[in-house]
């Protein structure tokens, strides 16, 4: 299963480190990544592959959310399918 991680907030050091640390820890592979500043907000999008993940989706989601709170960013993870479904005919 592939998922999209969205990180939104004020730019600071250690954002990629904090997210990728969790992904590495749970054996989740990063397949694509981009970052940009949109409307004064730092926005990072990551496409990840969860097929070899060693925890449940909910656990990964909770870990990312907690990491987001600790660095003052909002971090979400959603299955990729929802974006495909809504934006492709």
């Amino acid at each position: 299963m592939k998922a999209v991680i969205t990180v939104i907030g004020k730019d600071r050091t250690g954002i990629i480190y904090n997210v990728s640390k969790i992904l590495y820890h749970h054996n989740v592979n990063i397949e694509d990544l981009n970052q940009t500043i949109m409307q004064d907000n730092f926005t990072m999008l990551m496409l990840v592959n969860c097929s070899k993940m060693d925890c449940t989706f909910e656990e990964l989601k909770a870990a990312l959310r907690a990491a987001g709170e600790s660095i003052g960013m909002s971090i979400r993870i959603q299955r990729e399918d929802i974006f495909d479904a809504m934006h492709k005919i």
Binding site: K2, T6, T43, L45, M46, I82, F83, D84, M86
Partner: peptide, 13 residues
Amino acid sequence: MPLINKDILETIK
């Protein structure tokens, strides 16, 4: 899938 910021952020919004 190439990451398309606009679509992803629109869904989140």
